[in-house]
C-alpha cells in the first residue's frame, strides 16, 4: 500500500519535473529540474528493489552528467529566448502529433497482454537465495551479457578516439617535451668531476653549449638589380 503510494508520488514528481525541464524559461532551472527527475527515477528503482541501479543513477547522472550540463549551460552564452521562438512556432503541430502518439500509446497500454511464457523468461531482479542485487548484476554482466558489456567498452573507446580526433590540435606555438631531441642534442650529457663539498656558488650551473646562431643569408648581388 505504502509502496504503491510512494510509486505514484515519485512517478508524478518525475513526470512533472520532466515537463518542467522542457518548459522552464531559465536553462539553469531546467537542469535543476532534470536533477530532480533523476532523483525520482532513482527512487522508483529503489521501490523496484534495484538499489544498485538507483545508486548508479544518482552517482553517474546526478553527480557527473547533470553537473556537466550545468557547467555547459552556465559557460556557454546561448540565447535560449531565440531558440524558444522556433519551439513556440511549432508547438501547435507538436502538440497535435504528441497528442496522437499519446492516444495511440494509451490504446496500446489498454490492450496490453503479455506472452504466456514472458514471466518465466524474464530475469528476476531479486534473487531468491539472498544474493545482493549488485552481485546478481555482476554475475550476468560477466557471463550472459559479456558480449554487450565488451561492446559498451569499445563504444567508450571509440568515443574517446572521436573526442580526440575532433578537438586535439597541434598548436605550433605550444611547447612540448621532445625526449628524442633532448637526448640527441650535442653535449647534453657530460660527466664532470665535481669537487666534493663544493656548493653551487663555486661550481656554477652547467649549461650545455648553445647551438650556433644561423648565419645571415648571403644575398647574391651578381645580378646587379636594384638595391
Amino acid at each position: 500500500m505504502i509502496a504503491g503510494l510512494a510509486f505514484y508520488l515519485f512517478a508524478g514528481i518525475l513526470i512533472a519535473s520532466a515537463v518542467m525541464v522542457v518548459t522552464s524559461r531559465n536553462p539553469v532551472h531546467g537542469v535543476l529540474f532534470l536533477i530532480l527527475a533523476f532523483f525520482n527515477a532513482a527512487a522508483l528503482f529503489l521501490i523496484a528493489g534495484a538499489e544498485f541501479l538507483a545508486m548508479i543513477l544518482v552517482i553517474v547522472y546526478v553527480g557527473a552528467v547533470a553537473v556537466l550540463f550545468l557547467f555547459v549551460v552556465m559557460m556557454l552564452d546561448i540565447d535560449f529566448a531565440r531558440l524558444r521562438e522556433g519551439f513556440r512556432r511549432n508547438a501547435p503541430l507538436g502538440l497535435v502529433i504528441g497528442g496522437i502518439l499519446l492516444i495511440e500509446l494509451l490504446l496500446v497500454a489498454a490492450a496490453w497482454r503479455f506472452a504466456p511464457e514472458a514471466a518465466a523468461l524474464r530475469l528476476q531482479p531479486v534473487q531468491p537465495d539472498g544474493v545482493t542485487n549488485t552481485e546478481a548484476l555482476g554475475r550476468v554482466l560477466y557471463t550472459d551479457y559479456v558480449y554487450a558489456f565488451q561492446i559498451a567498452g569499445l563504444i567508450l573507446l571509440v568515443a574517446m578516439i572521436g573526442a580526440i580526433v575532433l578537438t586535439l590540435r597541434d598548436r605550433p606555438t605550444a611547447k612540448r617535451q621532445d625526449v628524442a631531441a633532448q637526448i640527441a642534442r650535442s653535449g647534453s650529457v657530460v660527466t664532470r668531476r665535481v669537487p666534493i663539498g663544493a656548493g653551487l656558488a663555486e661550481t656554477g650551473i652547467a649549461r650545455p653549449p648553445l647551438p650556433e646562431a644561423p648565419k645571415p643569408k648571403q644575398v647574391e648581388h651578381q645580378g646587379g638589380g636594384h638595391h
Binding site: 561492446i151 559498451a152 563504444i155
Partner: peptide
Amino acid sequence: MGLELSALPLY
C-alpha cells in the same frame, strides 16, 4: 550495441 558501435564512429 552493434548499431551504436557502428554509428558513433560515423558521427
